[in-house]
Design a binder for these strands. Structure first.
Lengths: 370, 370
DNA sequence: TCGGCCTCTGATAGCGCGATCACGGTACCA
DNA sequence: TGGTACCGTGATCGCGCTATCAGAGGCCGA
């Protein structure tokens, strides 16, 4: 191929089996003769500068000149070299996205929204996925993205503790958080989780349930905290007793475990679960324990994943518009890139979606079965 | 794309409020005084070239010189400018991923696998999401990624027709397909879908079911074709009659619709569904129609999404290792980038996961209900 | 008729890095 | 001791593009 692989020489070549860090061996690819701006300029009979102006939509170019240039561009199938462009403009036209476990529905939906908004704005999206959502891992990924010259970062719904640490030691580019980050002090676009939690809980209370149990998400996720706070607020305003909180980790399995535990509480008639996946697990555990949904136990989930309408029974839940959230985050980031100062956008109010997993608490009010 | 938006001409300056395409006004960001290689060189008392060599792990640098340089790098928090680097090496260290609806479990899991493998290899991942999986949309996104100088592309499990068209008009960089693409002639890493389909079907036949119905994925997805072919093969080798194929679009809703239709066939006792989501919808439809799972109807899904173990009943399914598939695709792509010639890797054999959605066909063999 | 100004275009000079070649030094052999 | 072989290092140049400024030409009003 190309050539070299400079390691030749070698008496003591130590070059192989080197851990993949800073250096990495970069062999130039065999040069394909791509046209450059000068080629276009020649073909169009103008100077390279004029070609540049045309491609940048600079106003002061005569229409016919522009035409000639564009014709030459099309003819040669010319494309600007983004590296050369980035070198001189100091703009990479790229933003980074830090995601946690892209297979979580919320995360992947956010990625979609962010990607779409970025594309619309002429930006590329470079993605980094962290296995564990702690500050060190996030920082590591964020740094690598920054090293790649992203102009800004979107961090997808992360742990509060991690965000706080991120806020303290800046990464060098604007950063926004998609999803809850109220307490982190970082600019963010978010959903009003407390409103969602309140809505879910009120629905169950209005249905006649004496109180509502809650299976929360991990303690240090802002989203989880908001939903929990909303649940507490709704119980308080109704004068209902607040049962002990159970914790899950968003996974279906953790919801099932919570369900196994909750099924022992025979007096329980209503549960608000902090996401749909956990609600699915919880419903299974309940049914396995002989408690029917919704006849014996009413359940409300959160997110409205596409499958939720087809759970058995179809799940009453709170819908978050993740794509919109992604778009807003991106808009915030673009503003921050342009103006240098980032702000937060007002929270999106989530939407109640009534399905069949909740029922009136007839039995209780009528003193029936329990 | 030629690009342009030639419509300018307009005597009057029409430069504001222009739709965000090629041109985009690029204003330079306020220059932050980042250190450059010369700064490091000065600090270390060497020439820029030596700094470059150290950072590229070039062998011929005296260890103590290297130390000095690395100390200076750390001191100044120097990071190489990737644009400048890319300009001269002609390597962007970036690969593109074209995904279709990132919220599909398979797609997002693939993204995870690809990202991880790319990161391990020192590459960045730029993502493009297509709304519709046709050749035009894919090509558009692929072109934009190529315009961004990605060194290669991974296309996630796409439609056969789209791939064929892609193969014919090359995009200019190596491309591999993650997921089925046997028939497309493009290099790919894939799962042996036929083996999976056969396994699922055989399981049901061995359980005593006279035959097995199939809810397939979209006709022009290679994955869907493979599973269907495996199903047909298993039926044929067992001498079972082959029922009419139903089609879904991978969505839970489409599975439910298929279920509504299948529930009318009272003689039906076993269904192999081409993915778990559709299986979920189908199970609900069956139950709504009064057919119990698995007592009346046995169901096998495909994918083993994390929720499948908590469906009601827990779903027997075929597990695909998406992350491994993503890694292999990336490896293939890296090979293609290095050697210029792409190959396919041997298909991964999916794994059978037995759960509770399938039962022996007692009734049938005993001539019982139907 | 001329100067001034606007419109359009081009020449030049980097952006920050790595490839190349040249060069001073040391080690080694005859 | 001289020559040869490196080894480690630096000077120079160019990657492809855009910012800047200068300049050619045309238009207008004085």
């Amino acid at each position: 191929m190309g050539d070299d692989d400079t390691a030749t020489d070698g008496t003591a070549t130590d070059d192989s089996a080197r851990p993949g860090n800073v250096g990495e061996q970069i062999e130039p690819l065999p040069p394909r003769p791509l046209p450059v701006m000068a080629d276009v300029a020649r073909a169009a009979g103008v100077s390279p500068m004029t070609v540049s102006r045309v491609l940048n939509d600079h106003p002061s170019v005569r229409p016919e000149t522009r035409e000639r240039v564009l014709a030459a561009v099309a003819e040669l199938e010319y494309r600007r070299n983004p590296a050369a462009r980035a070198l001189v403009t100091r703009r990479s036209q790229t933003v980074g996205v830090v995601a946690f476990d892209a297979t979580l529905y919320g995360q992947s939906a956010l990625v979609s929204g962010v990607e779409q908004a970025a594309r619309d704005a002429g930006y590329f999206v470079s993605i980094g996925i962290v296995k564990e959502m702690n500050a060190r891992a996030i920082r590591e990924v964020a740094d690598s993205l920054v090293a790649q010259s992203v102009e800004g970062l979107v961090v997808l719904a992360a742990r509060v503790s991690a965000l706080q640490e991120l806020r303290d030691r800046t990464v060098g580019v604007p950063m926004v958080v998609a999803g809850g980050a109220h307490r982190s002090g970082l600019p963010s676009a978010s959903v009003d989780q407390a409103a969602g939690g309140r809505r879910a809980t009120r629905h169950l209370l209005f249905r006649g349930h004496r109180t509502v149990w809650h299976v929360a998400g991990p303690e240090d996720w802002d989203d989880a905290r908001g939903r929990l706070a909303g649940w507490q607020a709704a119980l308080a305003e109704a004068g209902a007793v607040e049962p002990r909180v159970l914790r899950g980790d968003w996974s279906t399995a953790s919801g099932w475990r919570a369900g196994v535990e909750l099924a022992r509480h025979r007096e329980l008639t209503a549960v608000f679960v902090a996401n749909d996946q956990m609600a699915l697990g919880l419903m299974l555990a309940m049914k396995q324990a002989g408690r029917r949904v919704p006849e014996d136990v009413s359940i409300v989930g959160y997110d409205d994943v596409p499958e939720a309408a087809f759970y058995d029974p179809p799940l009453t839940t709170i819908r978050q518009d993740f794509e919109e959230l992604g778009r807003r985050s991106m808009q915030l980031l673009l503003d921050a890139i342009d103006t240098g100062s980032a702000s937060s956008s007002p929270p999106i109010i989530p939407e109640f979606v009534g399905r069949l997993s909740t029922a009136d608490a007839f039995d209780l009010t009528a003193g029936g079965r329990r």
